[in-house]
Amino acid sequence: MVIEAEENRRDFLILATGAVGVAGTAAAAWPFIRSWSPTADVLAQATTEADLSALAEGQMITIPWQGKPIFIVHRSAEQIAQAKEADSGSLPDPALDKDRVQKEQYLVLLALCTHLGCVPQPIGTGDFGGFLCPCHGSHYDTSGRIRKGPAPKNLPVPYYAFKDDHTVVIGKPV
């Protein structure tokens, strides 16, 4: 009996040490794995701020955000009306214009065609008063919705928030 107890304790000690060692080795792998995650200077580019005070009605700007192009359009009354008009029609990817903007006059889009990722041309180049993707001829309207061509979905609206009346922050801070 005594010998058996001794034997058990020995086994337990060795097992426990082995477990602690395996746990430690696994933990040691973490810094190596983590070193592949985006670095602090890359994360600092998670958000982009744009000042819209100089953006006149009818104009648009393209700004880089996380290495991708963002269109910000200061829409005219006519362009807004065009977008609202299409709300009731049949759309390939149905969405209401009011759900795609925070302030009616400012349209913010991630400008990568949902077909194969080209950058569409500026507003007014497409058939519906909107954007034409030159690669394969997708037409987006003044709300950035797909209307004609091979692209399956509307141009996505990135996460953004207005800091004040004229400053928009695109992206969520990490």
């Binding site: 973490w30 810094p31 190596f32 983590r34 070193s35 592949w36 995650s37 670095t39 602090a40 200077d41 890359v42």
Partner: peptide
């Protein structure tokens, strides 16, 4: 995986590793 052997950049890259890279 983070270093660049460039005389113009190498010193800054090491500081980039020290500051920006996770566990660098």
């Amino acid at each position: 995986m983070h270093y660049k052997p460039d005389a113009q950049q190498a010193f800054d890259i090491v500081e980039h590793i020290m500051r920006d890279v996770n566990y660098g």
